[in-house]
Design a protein around this nucleic acid. Structure first.
Length: 299
DNA sequence: TTCCAGGTGGCAT
DNA sequence: ATGCCACATGGA
């Protein structure tokens, strides 16, 4: 177990339930257990003893070296979200309200392949079922990475594993029509000797977007989720049904005008468009006010 | 029963 | 370049 003091702008519940990741499980005491980079850990937060408003993050089953190499980056702890929130609040009073519901959100830096798999499955699907599909996929075809507190944990199956499967073999996972996309994309990625997917992190957002959308089952929305949630392309602004609702109900942009939404985000949220999007997404799906907006669109 | 969910590919204009 | 629409699955 390691401890990291002086943590700000950080809420595990918000980080892990805001729709960017699907595999972290809440424990009874409010900590979260999950697998990333083939490591199994439990993370929890305690209030700081010296009353400075900071928190202490603890990670069970991790070493100091693993924190420096994996988890610091994974949790985006090098970025000052306080400063970003300040900038976004100044610009936009609507967004300021959304931010107040998700003060502790951070954008993770997940593994690209896991994010590709997750968001191919996410399309035209709902979050509880996305989670079930991914978990079934990992338990059935993923490598067992270890037994932790009496439970076996599995990694997301590698591209070369999924590339070998037939649609019939994937049928028990109940991916529906997305099974075909997943197999096809796994074939493309596993056949790519230079591993363009992992190189995307070091490329421009435009180059990475071009590669991602060349894969099967990845269009504009899924590509932007991958850019944002695994490659730290913070200006990526994924537009799904919820964001459409927000942009329509709160900003008065007509429902179908995706281009106007993109333009608005670029002009007003700029390089932090993706972070702004995530506050808005969390706000509409979790808060009372967001619930009203949601209900309102159905009338 | 019908509608909906972190949409995309294919095909017709 | 833009506009439809089929595509599986399960919960409300």
């Amino acid at each position: 177990m390691i401890r990291i003091e002086g943590i700000r702008d950080f809420d595990l519940e918000q980080i892990f339930t805001c729709g960017q990741c699907f595999r972290w499980e809440r424990e009874e005491n409010g900590s979260y257990t999950g697998v990333a980079y083939k490591k199994i850990v439990t993370m929890g937060v305690e209030n700081s003893l010296n009353g400075d408003g900071c928190k202490t993050l603890y990670i069970e089953n991790a070493t100091e070296e693993e924190f420096q190499e994996i988890w610091k980056n994974y949790l985006d702890l090098g970025r000052d979200y306080g400063e970003i929130k300040h900038i976004l609040k100044e610009k936009d009073s609507i967004l300021a309200q959304a931010i107040s519901y998700g003060e502790g959100i951070r954008i993770l830096r997940q593994e690209p392949w896991e994010t590709v798999v997750s968001f191919i499955i996410s399309q035209n699907n709902n979050i509880p079922r996305i989670k079930k599909c991914i978990e079934a996929l990992c338990e059935t075809f993923g490598e067992a990475v270890g037994v932790y507190k009496g439970k076996t944990y599995y990694a997301v199956p590698e591209p070369q594993v999924l590339a070998q499967l037939t649609e019939k073999e994937l049928a028990p996972i109940k991916l529906g029509y997305r099974a075909k996309y997943l197999i096809e994309t796994a074939k493309l990625v596993s056949a790519d000797r230079v591993n363009l997917l992992n190189q995307c992190c070091d490329k421009t957002a435009e180059e990475a977007y071009g590669y991602l959308t060349s894969l099967n089952g990845i269009g504009p929305k899924v590509a932007h989720c991958i850019l944002l949630f695994s490659m730290s392309k913070m200006d990526s602004f994924p537009i799904d049904v919820w964001v459409k609702r927000v942009m329509n109900q709160l900003y008065g942009i007509s429902q179908g005008d995706i281009k106007a939404m993109k333009d608005y985000a670029k002009a007003n949220f700029g390089v932090y468009g993706g972070i702004a999007q995530q506050y808005l997404f969390y706000f509409i799906r979790v808060s009372e006010e967001g619930e009203k907006i949601n209900v309102g669109t159905n009338c």
